[in-house]
């Protein structure tokens, strides 16, 4: 169904020169061509001259094809990889500051354990929890925490890597 395809998201890994202005070139391309970014992360790599971007975009297969081709045209872009036919690992990390009245702490800690999270900071009425995993897992953890009162939340955005021995 057309609407279902349109709502698809794709993960793209982009290897770029580690140079000032590169992020602006990439994000500018997405903005002016009307591609929707759901998340974008940039990090260093094992090669000091390169950065690695992981971009999650919404759009159909045609849009993804255009995004890939247009990205290739940027001089700073070395490689573009979509995980269309490749099994991929994806991870995200969330730091979540939740309201924690002393009487509800145990309940929260139990959930943290289920999600294999960690309490990284604790105060009288709040604690900060770290959880990593796929986007869905983080979403559902967030949902579990809602009744307690989420005071603040930050997510890293998705990073991805191919399974197996192949590399981007």
């Amino acid at each position: 169904m057309a609407t279902a395809i349109a709502a698809q998201t794709h993960t793209i890994t982009v290897l770029v020169d580690n140079r000032p202005g590169v992020l602006a070139r990439v994000s500018g391309l997405f903005a002016r061509r009307g591609y929707n970014i759901e998340s974008l992360t940039v990090s260093i790599t094992d090669n000091p001259n390169m950065s690695r971007m992981t971009i999650v975009v919404a759009g159909d297969a045609d849009t993804l094809e255009q995004i890939t081709k247009q990205l290739h045209k940027l001089i700073d872009v070395h490689k573009v990889f979509d995980y269309l036919d490749t099994p991929m690992l994806e991870r995200e990390l969330v730091l979540l500051k939740v309201q924690s009245e002393p009487e509800r702490r145990a309940e929260i800690l139990q959930l943290v354990e289920i999600f294999r999270g960690k309490v990284v900071d604790i105060a009288d009425r709040a604690m900060v929890i770290e959880v990593t995993g796929g986007g869905d897992k983080i979403d559902s953890f967030e949902k579990q925490m809602e009744p307690f009162g989420i005071r603040e939340l930050v997510r890293t955005g998705r990073i991805a890597m191919m399974r197996g021995s192949r590399t981007v």
Partner: peptide, 14 residues
């Protein structure tokens, strides 16, 4: 000007 012309050049340099 490199910022301004980013979308209208093949590439630019400062």
């Amino acid at each position: 000007i490199t910022g301004i012309t980013m979308p209208i050049t093949k590439h630019n340099w400062l």
